[in-house]
Computed example of a mutant assay.
Amino acid sequence: KSLNEGWLPDWDNGEYDKYYPWFKMSSSGFRYDGYGLRVSGSAVGSRLCFKSSELARYAGEQFTDVYRKFMIIE
């Protein structure tokens, strides 16, 4: 929320892209693996997303442990 500086994704507006960190789970562990792009026409539903690829990359690299705890059931 703070990284997006108040920006909220409008899933009904295809004019603006939405970005999210992409992670990889393997035998070596959970790690940041890049970022993805979804437009409002996506069928994947709502997710934690960012207004730019740079913010998605930063969040994925900086907060990998937080994402791991959020995404993995332990």
Rank of each mutant, 00 (worst) to 15 (best):
A43T: 09
R31Q: 15
G41S: 02
A56N: 09
D10L: 03
S2M: 06
S2D: 09
G29M: 08
E15M: 13
S46D: 15
T64H: 01
V66Y: 08
G41H: 02
F70V: 10
C49G: 05
L8S: 07
R31L: 13
K24T: 13
I73T: 15
R38T: 08
A43W: 04
C49T: 13
K69A: 08
W7F: 12
Y16D: 11
A56K: 03
G6H: 08
P21I: 01
Y19I: 12
Y19T: 06
W11E: 07
F63V: 02
I72M: 11
A43C: 00
D33N: 04
K51E: 13
R47Q: 04
L37H: 09
R31F: 11
R68V: 01
P21F: 04
F50W: 05
M71Y: 15
K1Y: 07
W22F: 07
V66F: 01
E54H: 03
E74W: 00
G41Y: 04
N13R: 15
P9Q: 12
S40G: 07
F50E: 07
Y58C: 07
Y35R: 00
D65T: 05
A43N: 06
G45T: 00
P21S: 07
S46P: 06
R47M: 11
R47L: 13
Y67S: 01
A59R: 02
V39Y: 02
D65Y: 02
G41W: 10
F30A: 01
Y32S: 04
R47Y: 03
K69M: 05
S52A: 07
D10C: 10
